[in-house]
């Protein structure tokens, strides 16, 4: 099957074709960049939203996604892709991708697609290829849910990737709520207090609310705090409805600029940053498109270094 045929079938949301294209967008070989550009050229732009769902392990993200997606599918005609990122072993590089076990969508529904990714032992919550795959899925599906562990080192990544970030929390003690003030509490657009059927949940809700006003002086209005139970389904409708009304926050160009910068940083570190600045910034390099900029980068920087 040639690429054009695969793209055509993927547009009809054929699962096998979608999976083959995802593999292409995850492909780490240099030769894949050109094919990616080819695929994107064949896929019309499409106004999709990317939703980030983050939270510590055990907060119940996967179980919540398992409830949210069927609700979204039932409440709308939209299609939903889920990209679930799990950590890899630092020793072997392999990963156990277990979110799928907890999610388990109905079989045969083309409007739902689930893909697990390993973060390839990167420190951040996202896999190096998460952005790449989101470029593809955005052209195929209406909503792309990206589920990641924690907001970690690269907390800005998820904010640039997603149009709206939900932080899933479980009922905590007071000290832990205080701890949230530092750093991660500033990132999410909305909070979901899961396991609200837990007796500790009521107290946590009010503590979280009061911490938010202290920790986020920049908010004009307090961010929404939803209460859900993935176990009973309580509060799921409300979150699903909110997710369906999310509007794009970033343009594709903004995203590409940011993730191009991240990629340069990963590959070339400070040298790469200097080269980009010297070349007139990421925007200038991205003139020929993201894939071409990546494809040309190594040769160009080597030339630039030789000239230096």
């Amino acid at each position: 099957m040639n690429l054009a045929e695969t793209v055509e079938r993927a547009r009809g949301l054929n699962k096998h074709a979608v999976a083959r294209l995802v593999a292409l967008f995850e492909d780490t070989r240099a030769s894949a960049a050109a094919e990616r550009a080819e695929v994107l050229a064949l896929l019309p732009e499409h106004s999709a939203t990317v939703i980030g769902i983050t939270g510590t392990p055990g907060a119940g993200k996967s179980s919540l996604v398992a409830r949210l997606v069927p609700t979204m599918l039932a409440e709308s005609d939209l299609s939903v892709a889920v990209l679930a990122v799990d950590p890899a072993s630092h020793v072997s590089g392999g990963a156990l991708l277990g979110d799928r076990t907890r999610t388990r969508f109905a079989t045969g529904d083309k409007r739902a697609y689930f893909r697990s990714q390993s973060n390839a032992a990167e420190l951040g919550g996202l896999a190096p290829t998460t952005f790449q795959v989101s470029r593809l899925l955005k052209r195929l599906f209406d909503v792309v849910l990206v589920e990641t562990v924690g907001i970690g080192q690269s907390e800005l990544d998820i904010r640039y990737l997603a149009d709206h970030v939900y932080l899933v929390l479980q009922p905590l003690g007071g000290d832990e709520i205080q701890f949230l003030k530092a750093g991660i509490i500033e990132i999410p657009d909305s909070f979901i207090l899961n396991k609200c059927d837990d007796p500790a949940a009521g107290m946590s809700y009010y503590q979280l609310r009061s911490s938010l006003s202290l920790a986020r002086p920049f908010d004009e209005d307090q961010p929404p705090v939803y209460r859900t139970s993935a176990r009973t389904g309580e509060g799921v409708d409300e979150v699903a409805a909110a997710m369906l009304t999310v509007t794009p926050r970033h343009t594709d160009a903004e995203r590409e600029e940011y993730f191009f910068g991240r990629w340069v940083e990963d590959q070339w570190g400070a040298t790469g940053r200097r080269f980009v600045a010297d070349a007139g910034g990421a925007q200038a390099l991205l003139g020929g498109g993201f894939d071409a900029a990546q494809g040309d980068f190594d040769a160009d920087i080597v030339g630039w270094l030789a000239r230096d």
Partner: peptide, 28 residues
Amino acid sequence: ARHVGFDVIYSGIRLSPDEIVQSAVEEG
């Protein structure tokens, strides 16, 4: 399998053959 470096999608028990196929296909 993880120990030797595979990415492992562990799908758990009591799966219908259709579910296994869907997992494998969607996950590439």
